[in-house]
Amino acid sequence: MQTQTHEDARRVCIICSKGGLDEVYPALILGNAARMSGIEAVLFFTFYGLDAVTESKVDHLHVNLAGNPTSPIPTVIGGLPGMENLAATMMKKQMEDLDLPSVREMMQMLAEAGAELYGCELAMEMFKRTKADLIPEVADVITAGDFYDLSEGAQIIFT
């Protein structure tokens, strides 16, 4: 894109507030696609989105089966113990077959591509986590006010 040689390129700030396996991918894919197009990207993980950047949880995200109108499995069965694990494992396998990267791998790609990852301070206090509990790709833990400072002049996407 030699036509985009000026320095003030587009900037996009994406908020990820959900922690389901199917709910974090929109934010991550938007972030990655932004970087691939040369757009600066900031990702802000808050509430259950914090699970996607927590070392102990990032490999164990689940899909909500109960009360999910788009789930192929009826709630009665989806609510049984162990079904969520099973569904998550099946989904992960499908993703591997499609060569879709895991959440952890997406985070590594995003960080290496130059996207900035941040955790939400309020969510950290709610879940009683420290920066040491997060994956190394997270740059810092910031408040909503800091997020607004970062997103000056940028487009904010809420997922």
Binding site: H6, D8, R10, D140, I142, D146, D149
Partner: peptide
């Protein structure tokens, strides 16, 4: 504040102009 970017400089593409960029003829 954590980091302040300069507010929109002149010449920054608006949304219409941004679409133009993608389709702009390459030089």
């Amino acid at each position: 504040p954590l980091r302040r970017r300069a507010p929109s400089a002149p010449g920054r593409p608006t949304s219409e102009a941004a679409c133009e960029l993608v389709k702009a003829p390459s030089t």
